[in-house]
Design a protein around this nucleic acid. Structure first.
Lengths: 227, 227
DNA sequence: ACCTGAACACCGTTCAAGT
DNA sequence: ACCTGAACACCGTTCAAGT
């Protein structure tokens, strides 16, 4: 259910902060599609037009939401070595993105990065540089890690067997296999029935396999003569 | 400019195929935001409501567009070894995604995968299995490669210095550095001015660095005792 | 058989008007 | 100072009506 506004809340005057918090509740509950100025107004007990006194437009609200998400990411730790600092950050970022699935496609695509965004990027680059990465190697590492983290969140988000019970999973496997000619796509059929839909398989576990493979590769590349 | 319909085209009766081709032209030119039933109708010289005779709704059009994109991806080659087959496929997929930027967030998120999509996934799994990957290792490889490829396309797409000339790049660098307090984000400032905005730096070049790092890592993992 | 007009329930945003 | 009503230019989709 959408947040209902009590009369006490109604008396509290609108503010940019209240608008942003209500917007975050809306998207966390119903995704980006649920964020409309009219609905946002309603959740605050106000007409949509009143919002324009506190934000210049909807785009600014989305910019603000993305920065709220950046605030939740743990900064890379100092004094533990770049590898475990990057590992921690990656896992934290992934957790944040599963809490706020609507944000996955937006984190890196806003033309107006907020302060939390800049702070986070600054901290990651700073950590890598302090560990002895030169600029080129830091750029390699950052591009690779972020592509992987965001890409994993994106492909994972799409999967249907995420919140399903084992019984539902078996049902879905059958449904999927009925949906396409098994003999035309034998490898895919085998993959689904023999692996992906097996009890105990959790796609989310793939994340750390890839993450560690990448971190090991970066370690090797950073100690080798430059390429 | 949007495609104008000549009187000859107007006489050709509408068909699912013509609707899909017109829709593809629309999104390639103006992104997903440009795809509306009314505009699509107009580009075909017809009212929006006429489209519903040939497609059941807009969602079906998007499903069809995504499958058109899957058709453009080169299938992994046989007989060249999994590593160069996967390398080829990754590069082909990335090229396709830069041609159809609007597709980046949609390729893996449609609940109704089309035949080209299934064919492609089947071919990739088949190639890995034929090269001796067991199911678990094929799943690792596929999850990692796709996360990286789609994630890279997503983060790359967002960057402003892509179609810019060196002169424009220098201008943007100045603009960005003026936009935030340099002493608050010193690492980011150094990164931008000393590296990212330098003439000769092309973010797209980062793709193959990460791709080869991942392929090397997969090779190592697949010949090691299982993890 | 194929397309259109009018309608419905939505959008974001502007602006004069109300308290 | 802060909010609202009415309006504008859009959406996707349905359905009776036209040819």
């Amino acid at each position: 259910m959408t947040t209902q506004t009590t009369s006490a809340e109604r008396r509290t005057p609108l503010s940019r902060d209240r608008v942003m918090r209500a917007a975050l509740a809306l998207v966390d509950e119903g995704g980006m599609g649920a964020l409309t100025m009219r609905r946002l107004g309603r959740s605050l007990g106000v007409e949509a037009m009143a919002l324009y006194r506190h934000v210049t437009n909807k785009d600014e609200i989305v910019d603000g939401l993305v920065d709220l998400v950046f605030e939740e990411i743990g900064a890379p730790a100092d004094g533990v070595g770049w590898k475990s600092a990057m590992r921690q950050r990656a896992i934290s970022l992934r957790e944040v993105l599963t809490r706020h699935r609507w944000a996955v496609g937006l984190m890196e695509s806003r033309p107006n990065p907020g302060r939390a965004n800049l702070r986070h990027h600054d901290a990651v680059i700073g950590n890598l540089r302090a560990a002895g990465f030169d600029m080129a190697m830091a750029a390699h590492a950052y591009a690779l890690l972020d592509a992987y983290i965001y890409g994993f969140a994106m492909t994972h988000m799409a999967l249907p067997f995420d919140t399903a019970t084992p019984g539902e999973v078996a049902e879905m496997a059958e449904g999927m296999l009925r949906a396409f000619p098994v003999n035309e796509f034998p490898n895919l059929a085998a993959f689904i029935s023999e692996h992906a839909m097996h009890p105990g398989y959790d796609f989310g576990d793939e994340f750390e396999f890839g993450l560690d493979l990448i971190l090991d590769g970066l370690e090797r590349a950073s100690t080798e003569p430059s390429r």
